[in-house]
Amino acid sequence: MAKQALCVGINNFKNYPSAALQGCVNDADDMQSLLKNLLGFQDTDIVKLTDTKATKTNIIKNLKEMVEGAKNGKYSYLVFSMSSHGTQVPDLSGDEPDRADEAFCPYDLAQKGDVWDPKHIITDDELRDLFIQLPKDVLLEVYLDTCHSGTGLKAIDFLLDRKPRYLPPPSMEAFLKVDGKRPRGLNKALMEKGITHHILWAACRADQTSADASINGGWHGAFTYYFCKEMVSSKNKLSHSAILEKIRKDLRAGNYTQIPQLECEATVRDKTIG
């Protein structure tokens, strides 16, 4: 099975130094190691973009190359992981007025007027429109360790050295446009287009935040850390659903409130990853 992966991790943001995270680059490193050591990827099969290299242009360019390669029969298994801040933008497609689009923050995140600049933000609609081009015999696994919608730090997070991976919209005007609207998420965006043969892992529910956390002496995304931990300890002999339950158990034991989500066909849930 010809493979290709893109691992993205962004701790620092060009125009928003105060929004810095600490675990996202480690997440990209961890995912790269997991792919190589457990899932049969070679160095040449993996592109890793971190911080200054992880601009919207570079991320989308690499994703487009992966999709084109798959369409041309070069790849049959694609992996995309992204650890960064999540945010929200008003529904850009206009297909559902009572919805806010999920968005993911590249290194060059920037504001235009009262909202995020479309040239410097990645929306779920953009990813959906790219991924729906994939042939049905190509397996795509997406890992998003970002927040969908933030409600701020809980008291316990201050005690345990954690930070949510969420940036609110850049102005009060933009916030009011998404406040109270239901977040959809990439999984729903794909399913609304009838794309059910791909696999999406999300670090939390659409109404939750995911944690950038200090774990065992290092900073990581809590979801990515425990996903890699359970994959390695099981040697990838457990099903998707079994790994999910183990990650959820780990997070509960660590007093995390986020609940990771797995979206895929029922038949896939009982298969191992890759």
Results as ranks from 00 to 15, higher is better:
residue 70 A to R: 07
residue 70 A to C: 03
residue 74 K to V: 07
residue 74 K to L: 13
residue 76 S to T: 09
residue 77 Y to R: 15
residue 77 Y to A: 03
residue 79 V to P: 02
residue 80 F to G: 02
residue 81 S to Q: 10
residue 82 M to L: 12
residue 82 M to E: 05
residue 83 S to N: 02
residue 84 S to D: 13
residue 84 S to K: 10
residue 85 H to K: 05
residue 86 G to L: 07
residue 88 Q to M: 05
residue 89 V to Q: 14
residue 90 P to H: 05
residue 90 P to A: 06
residue 91 D to E: 15
residue 91 D to R: 05
residue 91 D to L: 01
residue 91 D to I: 01
residue 92 L to M: 10
residue 93 S to V: 05
residue 94 G to F: 11
residue 94 G to W: 07
residue 95 D to E: 15
residue 95 D to A: 01
residue 97 P to Q: 11
residue 98 D to W: 08
residue 99 R to E: 13
residue 100 A to R: 06
residue 100 A to L: 09
residue 101 D to K: 01
residue 102 E to Y: 04
residue 105 C to I: 09
residue 105 C to E: 09
residue 106 P to L: 04
residue 108 D to H: 04
residue 109 L to K: 09
residue 109 L to Y: 12
residue 109 L to I: 13
residue 110 A to P: 04
residue 112 K to M: 12
residue 113 G to Q: 12
residue 113 G to N: 09
residue 114 D to W: 05
residue 115 V to P: 00
residue 115 V to H: 11
residue 117 D to Y: 10
residue 117 D to Q: 08
residue 117 D to W: 14
residue 118 P to H: 09
residue 118 P to V: 08
residue 121 I to Q: 13
residue 121 I to T: 09
residue 122 I to D: 06
residue 123 T to P: 11
residue 124 D to W: 00
residue 124 D to Q: 12
residue 125 D to F: 14
residue 126 E to G: 09
residue 126 E to A: 14
residue 126 E to D: 09
residue 127 L to I: 02
residue 127 L to P: 01
residue 127 L to H: 00
residue 128 R to F: 00
residue 128 R to H: 03
residue 129 D to A: 03
residue 129 D to M: 02
residue 130 L to K: 10
residue 130 L to D: 06
residue 131 F to E: 10
residue 132 I to T: 10
residue 132 I to F: 08
residue 133 Q to T: 02
residue 134 L to D: 00
residue 135 P to H: 06
residue 135 P to L: 11
residue 136 K to H: 15
residue 137 D to Y: 01
residue 137 D to I: 01
residue 138 V to Y: 14
residue 139 L to I: 04
residue 142 V to W: 04
residue 142 V to E: 06
residue 145 D to P: 10
residue 145 D to G: 08
residue 146 T to F: 00
residue 147 C to G: 07
residue 147 C to Q: 12
residue 149 S to Y: 09
residue 151 T to A: 12
residue 151 T to K: 14
residue 151 T to Q: 13
residue 151 T to L: 08
residue 152 G to Y: 00
residue 153 L to M: 13
residue 155 A to P: 03
residue 156 I to M: 01
residue 157 D to A: 03
residue 158 F to G: 10
residue 158 F to K: 12
residue 160 L to Q: 08
residue 160 L to E: 14
residue 164 P to K: 11
residue 165 R to V: 10
residue 165 R to G: 14
residue 166 Y to W: 09
residue 166 Y to F: 15
residue 167 L to K: 12
residue 167 L to R: 08
residue 168 P to V: 04
residue 168 P to I: 04
residue 168 P to S: 12
residue 170 P to K: 04
residue 170 P to W: 06
residue 170 P to F: 01
residue 171 S to W: 00
residue 176 L to C: 15
residue 179 D to L: 09
residue 180 G to W: 07
residue 182 R to M: 13
residue 184 R to C: 15
